[in-house]
Design a protein around this nucleic acid. Sequence first.
DNA 1: CATGAATGAGCCTTCATTCAT
DNA 2: CATGAATGAAGGCTCATTCAT
Lengths: 198, 198, 198, 198
Amino acid sequence: MSRAPGSSGEKTLKAIYEAGIDLIYQYGYEAVSLRQLAGAVGIQAGSLYNHIASKQDLLFKLIHSIVLELNEQLDAELENIDDPEEAMRAFVRYHITWYTARKQQVFIGNMELRSLKAENYTKIVALRRRYEMRLKDILDRGIAEKHWSMPDSSVSARALIAMLSGVCVWYDPEGGYSIEELVSIYTEIVFKGLGKPA
Amino acid sequence: MSRAPGSSGEKTLKAIYEAGIDLIYQYGYEAVSLRQLAGAVGIQAGSLYNHIASKQDLLFKLIHSIVLELNEQLDAELENIDDPEEAMRAFVRYHITWYTARKQQVFIGNMELRSLKAENYTKIVALRRRYEMRLKDILDRGIAEKHWSMPDSSVSARALIAMLSGVCVWYDPEGGYSIEELVSIYTEIVFKGLGKPA
Amino acid sequence: MSRAPGSSGEKTLKAIYEAGIDLIYQYGYEAVSLRQLAGAVGIQAGSLYNHIASKQDLLFKLIHSIVLELNEQLDAELENIDDPEEAMRAFVRYHITWYTARKQQVFIGNMELRSLKAENYTKIVALRRRYEMRLKDILDRGIAEKHWSMPDSSVSARALIAMLSGVCVWYDPEGGYSIEELVSIYTEIVFKGLGKPA
Amino acid sequence: MSRAPGSSGEKTLKAIYEAGIDLIYQYGYEAVSLRQLAGAVGIQAGSLYNHIASKQDLLFKLIHSIVLELNEQLDAELENIDDPEEAMRAFVRYHITWYTARKQQVFIGNMELRSLKAENYTKIVALRRRYEMRLKDILDRGIAEKHWSMPDSSVSARALIAMLSGVCVWYDPEGGYSIEELVSIYTEIVFKGLGKPA
DNA sequence: CATGAATGAGCCTTCATTCAT
DNA sequence: CATGAATGAAGGCTCATTCAT
């Protein structure tokens, strides 16, 4: 009897992705060898090529799926929210939650961009820009509807994302702050920055 | 061959540091080869070893001198300032100015930490913590003397630094905002966050 | 490229050992490069690492297998011999035969010891000592049972081995003396030294 | 005032020779770097070239002076001895004494021959052959005058030298045997081998 | 004489990748 | 699909040697 289609191969591929994220997060894309990766998966280096086209291809697929998911889940989160204030709260909560929950993926998605070859780099940057745009939209709507005071919504969108992203650099699950507390703190800071104390 | 006329140890070392920063910023520590670096300096790869002990040693010295200078110049900047509000303004201005002026160094100092071997990593992290402490001091004094409202001065110090640091990721000298404008914008955001509109 | 058709791990490893012995005998361990060795085997330098862990590892395995075989075959040779005189004759014949037949291995086994790192050196020296002990046993039994006159059986064992080993330094298959003649000559010298003319 | 001629330079050269013998004995010619040697002498690697022409030149001069001295002192030792038996005793004593006293030099003189380039190798081998000839002469005269029984004086000369040389491989000044005792033991063995118990 | 900085070749080793089995 | 053995390029580093200072 032949193997159930996609069963074993799929599992191996998933294992490769997971080990890839772990290793690249810890050592960096350039510093991780395919032998190391294969070892973590429990196969030989050559066997990786039954699942990935190349090392670069692996990195791209990894980052792509990360950024894609970040966008898709954000869309879902904001889907039925019209009020800019509510949207902003949702965004802050979503961003911090996602970023701290996926520390490794976030790190890779930010720091390994330069290891992508030009063609792949372009695709990822487009997706990231799309994410920024969602926040800029919220800001623009808040300025129009709620009289938020913002020097410039483009700059501010980036500044807010940079600030919110900073959390995941130093967030420690055992560190005395729950995600909820962090969300509270940052929401407060954000709305103070918008001239509308939460 | 012998020494090229006019060459000197100090000059070569400086050239190595400069080319090192350029290349590591652009391609990452792991991705830069010593042959590449030597080529940029105009010497043979082996000749690098008259000036550095190893590739790792170069990275460490690079990052160390960056973080050291960041600290020392901050100390100088804050030396005679007692008022927390003035100190905060000085800190924001200093941080943004330094970070945008030394975009490359900042990038390396943050992103290549993981390429440091444990022993070197520890030393750098200590220096970075010292920098954070300077800001925490300002916050604590502001809370005490000026009734700033801050959920937690440790968390806030990191959050502020993360926010301010984000600037240098997207700052573009030709991008429509002068440093002075950025300093203004961020100072405003910060003081709003402290409950004391600038 | 992929594997050359018909190649196999075992065969390649054997070829590496054989070329390794040839080259190290001729030029010395330090003077032989892995490129040279790989060239003699007909593969690329890097491919050696599919079969050995390092250059040092190759040397160790080479010497280890030599000294191990020397011991094992001696054990087989002496297995059923109780009479010390017969045992001594067997030892002399065995030692000279083995040493002249394996001139290269003997040379490497003696002269490249210092190229072994401490840990490997220790293991080899233990095996060599074991070989000496076999001769010392024969001497002790000869002294007890046959009234051989020996100043000191430990010193004498080493002296005899040194003397017998000297043969292989200058032995030349085309040089006028057959192995049988050498064995005769040395057996005679040995027994004269024992006070028991052969 | 100018430096006394030959004073400082001579001293440095002597230091180079001494450090050279130490290091080559310990690690082997190929394994010793000129930097290491220079370090042991207390100068920079480049400065060595004020005293030696090349690394190979150093090795040759080292070995040459060793073999030359071995010959010259033997000549002095045997100068006024006509009786072959006395000469043999003198040879055994001299060889063992010299070989154990100059363990390092002996080792280098034997084991680093292969690191000499062809031209230098030839010169050294000629000197070594001369030394063997002195012993063969003694043997021939003993056979003629004293009825020593020797299968072949050429083979025996080499066998004796190999045997006597073996001493220095395992001789240990703290090892329980004085040089005098070793000389006694080996003289006894030799004369027994000659059919003339001492 | 000694130094320090340079060269260019070479070393051991690792790597991503390929493919017969 | 997985393996194991191969490739060819490249990597970090050391070396003997040279020579302006």
